[in-house]
Design a protein around this nucleic acid. Structure first.
Lengths: 134, 134
DNA sequence: CTGTGTGCAAACTCTTTGCATAAGT
DNA sequence: ACTTATGCAAAGAGTTTGCACACAG
């Protein structure tokens, strides 16, 4: 599906910047990226976008359901182009995030949400460290 | 066990501030707290500690194995006084973090760590939202 | 045209750091 | 005394915001 159409369907006007960013994000399969990294990538490809716009765009995409935010500690926010229900590996050495296909993993015995609350999502983060590092 | 002794055993000199903070942290069962919240609490109890010292202390305690950091999205870092292996509820409405006892929950089919990597920890965060809020 | 999006720079939040002073042993 | 910790204020990182200009429909 073409990007402009996809944006329009999400209720977002397909501006140059949004189209360009959507391209970078969705062209090559699933990605996990920070705002800063995406901004640099855009610059490298000679797409003029300001960092502020990258942030705005990422949040708009997230609200529109095109992206998903992944919580890892540390200041940075990661955005995941795979919005389906799945979990992650996080390499603490490199800061890289990788998908774990949901098929493999299963959580048993999840407790009820407390009174008046509903479970909105379950995040699983498997932290990895490089073996040779202490 | 008294706090001063516990700190000494962790290799930390039991200074006024560290003892006072340790007291606030460990006196009333398991807690999940941010640096800022702990700082405010200390002020409220007339314990003079600077925010910088609170941060330093929390990190020193974490390195010493007395605390554990919990990754939730957003800028804030939460510290958990329960260092055993367990998971969390996170209420997105209030920002409150609660323990889930590990006994209840079980993860099946966890994939192998990629080549050269070792799993250091598995974090599970069950996100909750208030039912009446959308 | 008309309204929405963008860019810039400044503001903000949370966290860390450098260095002189104070406290622990 | 000698060493380590603390406090302050300033710096840093990541993110957000306000407002004038630009662009899509």
């Amino acid at each position: 599906m073409d990007v402009a159409k996809r944006l329009r369907e999400a209720g977002l006007r397909p501006t140059r910047q949004r189209v360009a960013l959507a391209h970078l994000l969705f062209a090559n399969g699933d990605r996990h990226i920070t705002a800063e990294a995406l901004h640099e990538e855009a610059q490298a490809r000679k797409v003029p976008v300001s960092l502020a716009t990258v942030y705005n765009t990422l949040h708009q995409f997230t609200e529109a359901g095109l992206l998903r935010e992944v919580a890892v500690e540390g200041a940075k926010t990661y955005f995941d182009t795979n919005t389906s229900n799945h979990y992650h590996f996080f390499c603490e050495t490199s800061g890289r995030l990788m998908d774990i296909s949901t098929g493999d993993i299963r959580i048993e015995g999840l407790p009820e949400a407390p009174e008046g609350m509903a479970i909105s999502r379950v995040d699983v983060l498997v932290r990895l460290t490089d073996k040779r590092r202490r």
